[in-house]
Computed example of a mutant assay.
Amino acid sequence: MANLTEQSCEACRVGAPLATTEEIAQWLPQLTDWQIVNVDSIDRLTRTYQFNNFVDALTFTNKVGELAESMGHHPALLTEWGRVTVSWWTHKIKGLHKNDFICAAKTDAIYPSLSK
């Protein structure tokens, strides 16, 4: 099994299959501190990252935005003083897809360079 951070998102279409229970059980342990949260009947991968100030939180938000653009896959981002909450899900299928786990792992990879 390849590490999620080494993989790329695939083009996702309406009707693509949601991640199975078995796939989630395989991928979720590769992610640190992520939770599956159900919002409006849609499962999302969500994590809140801590920072020492707003500037670092904003820098992280921008780096996650750059990641999102490069992957063609976009999360919900809530930037506040000292923290950023990131939620990944696949809008087209209204739930979780492998792309969400890949992007969550890549988001985790960005964090150590900005946290103190």
Score class of each variant (00 low, 15 high):
37 V>G: 04
44 R>K: 15
96 L>N: 03
110 I>S: 07
56 D>K: 04
36 I>R: 02
79 T>W: 09
75 P>H: 08
2 A>Y: 12
8 S>D: 11
51 F>Y: 08
111 Y>Q: 04
18 L>E: 05
78 L>S: 12
25 A>P: 12
73 H>S: 03
2 A>W: 10
28 L>V: 07
115 S>H: 15
65 G>N: 08
49 Y>I: 01
68 A>D: 00
21 T>I: 06
101 F>Y: 12
102 I>T: 01
29 P>A: 06
55 V>G: 10
103 C>S: 03
18 L>G: 03
98 K>C: 04
48 T>H: 11
47 R>T: 07
38 N>R: 14
66 E>R: 01
15 G>M: 10
19 A>R: 00
104 A>P: 08
69 E>A: 00
116 K>T: 09
101 F>C: 04
76 A>W: 13
16 A>P: 00
22 E>V: 06
52 N>C: 10
75 P>I: 05
51 F>Q: 10
25 A>I: 09
37 V>R: 05
95 G>E: 10
60 F>I: 03
58 L>I: 10
77 L>T: 07
65 G>R: 05
79 T>D: 11
76 A>C: 07
72 G>K: 03
116 K>W: 06
18 L>K: 05
1 M>V: 10
26 Q>I: 06
44 R>F: 07
67 L>N: 05
107 T>F: 02
21 T>N: 14
101 F>N: 01
68 A>V: 01
3 N>Y: 03
97 H>I: 12
24 I>F: 07
87 S>K: 04
97 H>D: 13
108 D>M: 00
42 I>L: 12
61 T>M: 09
34 W>A: 00
103 C>N: 02
83 R>Q: 15
